[in-house]
């Protein structure tokens, strides 16, 4: 049994992403130095969406990469082997401002793993973090630079983010309570 509460509907997600895009643009004056890296899997769609919005603001395309962090996780022993998705970073991150993207920020362990994984590709000048939902319960000293919405949650609850490309259904963020 589980019940779910609507957190963000499609329009609210769109507004949040537009705001985040402007905040990224405001924070980073030299737009040519900014690259987006989405963490598999939720962050990948986020990177595509924000990439399109930022390209509109800046008037030039923004490089986008995908990062899978399963090989860098610190909890590989505690669970079943995760599915490994491809990592594609078709540009040099050295000297760049990398904006890491994930759909939900929780313990912070994924982000730590992502920063470790990025180190294997080069040395970014700085790394910033953008998330659609910050649900709290951090276990590491990690903080997002750009947040779509802060959602206080209990540990037994789950945040479900559903991005639907090509309009098959509506984008939605829900809070699921496990009874």
């Amino acid at each position: 049994m589980s019940e779910s509460t609507l957190i963000l509907n499609a329009a609210a997600i769109r507004r949040a992403l537009i705001r985040i895009a402007h905040e990224i643009a405001e924070r980073n004056e030299v737009s040519a130095d900014v690259v987006l890296v989405g963490i598999q899997r939720g962050g990948v769609t986020l990177a595509q969406r924000l990439g399109a919005l930022l390209a509109g603001i800046w008037g030039h395309p923004v490089p986008i990469g995908n990062l899978d962090v399963s090989m860098h996780r610190d909890d590989l022993d505690g669970r079943l082997t995760p599915t490994v998705h491809p990592t594609v970073i078709p540009f040099d991150v050295t000297g760049k401002t990398v904006v890491l993207l994930d759909d939900v920020l929780f313990s912070g362990r994924t982000v730590r793993a992502a920063m470790d994984a990025l180190n294997d590709f080069g040395r970014p000048q700085r790394i910033q973090l953008a998330v659609l939902i910050d649900r709290g319960h951090r276990e590491l000293p990690i903080k997002a630079d750009f947040v779509g919405k802060n959602v206080p949650t209990a540990n037994g609850e789950n945040i479900l983010v559903q991005f639907t490309e090509e309009g098959a259904a509506e984008d939605v963020v829900q809070l699921e309570k496990r009874a």
Binding site: D68, S70, M71, H72, R73, L76, V84, H85, P86, T87, V88, D116, A117, N119, D120, F121, G122
Partner: peptide, 15 residues
């Protein structure tokens, strides 16, 4: 996914 690791400058992951 692991084949891509061998193509990187740092060919090692801490898994």
């Amino acid at each position: 996914a692991f084949k891509a690791v061998s193509a990187r400058a740092i060919k090692k992951v801490p898994a």
